[in-house]
Simulated scan of single mutants.
Amino acid sequence: MELKALEPKITEIVSNTNETIENRLYSICKLLESNINYYNWVGFYFKNGDKEELKLGPYVGEPTDHTIIPFGKGICGQVAVSNQNFVVPDVAAQDNYIACSITVKAEIVIPIFVNGENIGQIDIDSNTPDPFTEADERLLEFVCAKVSEIL
């Protein structure tokens, strides 16, 4: 599937004010996971109040024990500190990686900014080695920009 083709559907989901923000975020997770065959776990993490940690939000995929992630820990925790996209082609090569499942081979995390502040991120795990391209980054940046409008 052409990733850019998902953008109108993302816009439609985000714009549906009849749904709660939580339901809209969940719908985005479902849309991405069901339309991109190498997206095996799709979820959002958000800054947990004033704490230096992330809290799991809506997600689609295998349940995870990582509902709270300290800033700096794992890929998500590093993005909370760096404010930069993080694409990991091979999680086994990362020494600061928190394993969610032995099947995960790659991960991509894109931060969400509201008024210039990193308030969360979208996290994608893939069971396929090195699947993510620049097109994935652009799509997920689009998703994060749209999500930021409703947070």
Rank of each mutant, 00 (worst) to 15 (best):
L31I: 09
A80W: 00
D95G: 05
I75K: 01
G120Y: 01
W41H: 02
S15L: 15
V88T: 12
E141G: 12
C76L: 02
E137K: 07
D125R: 06
V143I: 12
A92P: 03
I122R: 02
P131E: 12
F71K: 14
A135S: 15
E22V: 08
G77K: 11
N118Y: 00
S126R: 00
E62V: 09
S82W: 00
E107R: 02
Y38K: 01
N35E: 07
K4M: 14
D123H: 01
I28K: 06
I108F: 04
P58N: 08
F71A: 13
T11E: 05
I98C: 02
S34C: 06
P70Q: 09
C100T: 06
Q121N: 11
V81A: 01
I28F: 06
F132T: 14
N85M: 03
D95M: 07
E19Q: 12
T11Q: 12
D130I: 01
T103D: 04
I98P: 04
V91E: 04
I69Q: 00
L25W: 07
S34A: 15
G57H: 02
E107C: 06
E107L: 02
D50T: 15
I98W: 04
N118D: 04
N16M: 13
G74P: 03
D95R: 10
Y38H: 04
A106I: 04
K73Y: 01
I119Y: 00
L54R: 15
T128F: 15
P70C: 07
K146T: 01
V14K: 11
L32E: 10
I68S: 13
N118C: 13
I13N: 02
H66C: 06
N37R: 06
T64S: 11
I150E: 04
K47C: 14
P89Q: 06
L139I: 10
V109F: 02
F44G: 11
P70H: 04
E52T: 10
S82H: 03
P89F: 02
L31K: 07
E19K: 09
Y97I: 04
G74V: 05
